[in-house]
Design a protein around this nucleic acid. Structure first.
Lengths: 224, 224, 224, 224
DNA sequence: CATGAATGAGTTTTCATTCAT
DNA sequence: TATGAATGAAAACTCATTCAT
């Protein structure tokens, strides 16, 4: 079966391309990334990228679609209809954090995607982003409907979550290069930063969840 | 006094360069911006940029320093020692929003600055960012000391503020190009988006403030 | 065998580049030569130079290596172990002259190479120069060992040879542009300059050989 | 007397310019030298160069004229009509060497001047070079007339002298950067290189003189 | 399917030169 | 006399893209 073999090879090649591109786009952004660099990262010839995927923009769209689509799917999968809005929100936030944890290039890619506000975004990518946002929207609406959440601007909540998780992951990723920065943060909140070495995103998610639940839940948060 | 005149001209030229560069960097990011484009935006000869400021990276650092430094100064100026922590937080957030309102290129520039996590950042710019963060830190510490705020990770709060304000401004800026997006958001929260046309950032700031105070203040927020 | 064809084309392209570069570097020197000009002389796209060879300095080093290496090889090829030191010296000098005759750009390139004294010189080029010098060294040592040559500083002899041959060829090359100069020289030594039109370098070599043998040979040169 | 003062200042400025230019041209050649660099070396404003001397080429011609003219004058001054041709030749060679010793930038400047064969050379500079050459010409002619020198091509002798002295000085100047080169030469001819540390040029001159006298003098050099 | 070669159109940067003061 | 500012032209180098094989 030479066909099958060839097709499998083709898939492997495309996979290599997308992985390489994801890495390079995440590190350098759209204009900062060069097709040469991507080809090297993917260990394929530059022309192969054009043959299989198309030009730089098509490649970028495909990477975005894949990365964001996977995040969306991952979050949706965790969600469970029998959960309370508060549980859903916790799941949502930790779902994003988890994806970030497993998939470091996500935050910058996502940031640039949101940031560009649709400039380079294909309808597919826009749909992916909307899907992620849509899940949150439903949670908040359910909460409001059930009288457990106050009414709040969902887009702002969304941005607060994304901002915290994405930026934090990113700053953290650069701690190696700025040890004095890491030191500073660790001094500020020693408990937070020493308890969970290696799983920052999750503790970030917990803190964001805690804060947002305090912000959203109607019955004033207890004594604390 | 010929010198005085020349010096004034020089200052004007540098101003034009920095303004043009700020605009172009904000729109296109570091690698997306070209020195040619900046020169055109600044209405100066390309070589003049090199004469007065230096290479592209030096120009970028200078723009970052100016933009972020001004934000820091603006926020610091609004703050008043006699305010309560809650008032201070409100002032802080609206201070950032105000600067953003008056200075549209700030969010993407700032995002990239935070995002790059120090890679391209000069010590000066890092200091500026730290100054902005430091103000918040003090507010939160004062609140905790006075027993009015719960203890919370300050960096995460910081990121939530920046994320919401910066991203929001940015998405908003692209609404013209994606009218269906604007429509969507307006449908989601019609009150919010119709009340204060033209001053989005301020209403964003109010919403962020409201949410964060609910999250931070110790006595459970009242009825609401 | 498509590869073979492509490889052949590649070789031809590189050849064109090196030939063009040799010409332009020889005429204008390193800083005087522009990559644009070289591309035009080689009849290739500028980017092709960067693709195949690398940047300007790499190109220069490669040209030097080729030109000087060929000279070294050419001289070594003419030498014969059964020759007397005097015969070897004559062969050596005429070998250099011959290469110069066949390869006009050599002298300025070589001069600059020696002149720069190692600044831009790669180890490869330095080795080539040393090889040329090494051949002379051996001749002189053999002569001294056999008692036919006086002891003399070999490096100075080397410089006298290179200086005379290289400079002469070069000045000569510019005679077209300075006819009065040519005239002057021809008046000074009419025999020399009229006997062997078209083969200056060889008569230069003969004269240099004659003088150096007189200088080096132990038994006082005969009647003359 | 403000005029006098101003004139003196002007002269000082021009001196600084010429000294700086000589240095930079000697190090980098004509195209390798930049007016900016010269201005910095001369500690004057770039425009001042244009004001006092003219454009880059005019500056180059002026430097050449000064450098070569001084050499010519220096040699002529040492010469004495009562000397024998052999003494005159020795004086001539050591005169060039002496100037080189006192004035390091001379060799490269001179080399480029001869090399360019008139391309950039002004009539003045050509005259200077001819003057230096003319002195040698006369010595050789006198020697031939008096029957003490054989007939030899004067231009080749000239090139042998210049080549040895100029190149040697130059290679030597780069010994600091290529210690292994220096080592090699010193091993080859230890007597030569250890006896007269610090005055290479003079011993080079002596060696060149010795060799050329052996080559030129009619009565076969004695026993040796 | 895959790739090395080639290139047009950029990009960043430098530089000799002029000019107002 | 002297200079800081400004610039057009050109330099070195990069990059997304195409094409023959």
């Amino acid at each position: 079966m030479p066909q099958k073999n060839m097709a499998a090879n083709k898939d492997k090649t495309i996979r290599r391309i997308l992985d390489g591109a994801t890495k390079v786009f995440a590190e350098a952004g759209y204009s900062g990334a060069s097709v040469d660099e991507i080809a090297k990262a993917a260990n394929v010839n530059k022309a192969t990228i054009y043959y299989h995927v198309g030009d730089k923009e098509a490649l970028y769209v495909r990477v975005l679609h894949e990365v964001i689509g996977q995040t969306a799917a991952g979050i949706a999968a965790r969600m469970n209809n029998s959960m309370t809005p508060a549980e859903k929100l916790a799941t949502y936030i930790s779902g994003i954090a988890q994806t970030v944890e497993n998939y470091p290039p996500l935050p910058p890619v996502m940031m640039r995607a949101v940031e560009s506000g649709g400039q380079i975004l294909s309808p597919e990518v826009a749909a992916d982003l909307m899907m992620i946002f849509g899940i949150l929207l439903e949670i908040l609406e359910q909460g409001a409907r059930e009288g457990v959440f106050i009414k709040a601007n969902p887009f702002i909540i969304y941005l607060m979550i994304i901002g915290a998780v994405a930026f934090h992951r990113n700053v953290e990723a650069n701690w190696d290069q700025k040890p004095e920065l890491a030191m500073l943060f660790k001094q500020m909140d020693p408990d937070f930063y020493t308890k969970l070495e290696g799983s920052f995103s999750i503790s970030v998610a917990n803190e964001v969840t805690r804060l947002l639940l305090r912000a959203l839940e109607k019955q004033g948060p207890q004594k604390d």
